[in-house]
């Protein structure tokens, strides 16, 4: 294959990864932005979403698209409910103390992961995509499902933008993000907002899990990579900044795909993690964020 088509393929693959990453990182960014909670269990919500999608696909008979559609609905709902309960039972009681909540979400990570190991087992299991149609480019065929993932991500990100910017719920969230105390003084139930936001963030992760499972298989340890990558995206984009998150997700998704082709994936991950740690130290507002002062 010539270089042009080859780059085109790498770009497509990168965009697919960027799409999934965008949704996952948006959830992490939302939770951090509004609640100032760093959720280390975020990757486990992706994993739960994928595992629930597998259960849905194996329980619903008939065309794979039906099981997939069911999963798209119930996965975020179930995972959101679990997160909601976790927020009420744990994070709220810690009064959202930043260090304590990190430790607690690490605990949550192990509980979710190990519970799935008990219930679902240690195997990686595939889920059929809802449709198999292959798009023929002049140089290669490409799974139409992957293009669907990109489209779905655009729709979901649009929906998030709409909710945050144009609805009352979004206004309340932005108010809570801007200044918790003042929002509280104006009668916004900041407390309940936190629970809803935590559930919504987890729901987005679960949605990403459902979208990715026909490409990747469901496994109880699959949460680690999305967690690391979303951290990278959120740090580069600026903690809590949604537009920064989108730009960074596309950048990371594209470059990760291309870098992994050119270098070993381990080396790519190593270098990018190191660079991002340095960004957090020397440019804590992200590469695109405005400097403080």
């Amino acid at each position: 294959m010539a270089l042009g088509p080859y780059l085109f393929l790498a770009t497509l693959e990168g965009l697919v990864q960027a799409a999934v990453l965008c949704i996952t990182a948006a959830g992490l960014s939302l939770v951090f932005g509004v609640m100032r909670v760093v959720n280390v269990a975020h990757g486990e919500f992706v994993m739960l979403g994928a595992v629930i999608a597998w259960f849905a696909a194996s329980l619903v008979t008939g065309h794979p698209a039906i099981g997939f559609a069911v999963a798209l609905v119930i996965s975020p709902v179930i995972v959101g409910a679990i997160a909601f309960a976790g927020e009420r039972l744990i994070l709220k009681r810690l009064d959202y103390n930043p260090e304590a909540t990190i430790v607690a979400t690490i605990g949550l990570l192990y509980i979710l992961q190990q519970t799935v190991l008990i219930v679902y087992g240690p195997d990686a299991r595939p889920v059929d995509p809802p449709f198999y149609y292959t798009i023929r480019f002049p140089w290669f065929g490409y799974s139409s499902y992957k293009l669907f993932v990109i489209a779905a991500a655009i729709v979901i990100m649009g929906a998030i933008w709409f909710v945050l910017q144009k609805t009352r719920a979004g206004l309340i969230m932005r108010a809570a993000q801007f200044d918790r105390e003042t929002a509280q003084a104006f009668g916004i139930p900041v407390d309940r907002v936190s629970a809803v936001v935590f559930a919504a963030g987890a729901g987005l992760a679960a949605l990403a899990g459902v979208l990715v499972v026909p490409i990747q298989q469901a496994h109880y340890l699959m949460g680690a990579d999305p967690l690391l990558l979303s951290f990278i995206v959120v740090i580069i984009g600026g903690l809590g900044s949604m537009s920064g998150t989108v730009v960074a997700a596309i950048l990371i998704g594209l470059s990760d795909g291309i870098l992994s082709v050119m270098f070993s994936p381990t080396l790519a991950k190593m270098v990018s993690t190191l660079l991002v740690a340095l960004v957090l130290v020397f440019r804590p507002n992200g590469l695109f964020g405005k400097a403080e002062r």
């Binding site: 744990i90 009681r93 810690l94 304590a100 430790v103 607690a104 690490i106 605990g107 949550l108 990570l109 192990y110 509980i111 979710l112 992961q113 190990q114 519970t115 190991l117 008990i118 240690p122």
Partner: peptide, 16 residues
């Protein structure tokens, strides 16, 4: 085989 569950439980019990 899911013995790491105890890590999660103890972390949360202690922190709470």
């Amino acid at each position: 085989s899911a013995y790491l569950l105890v890590i999660g439980v103890v972390l949360i019990v202690v922190i709470l």
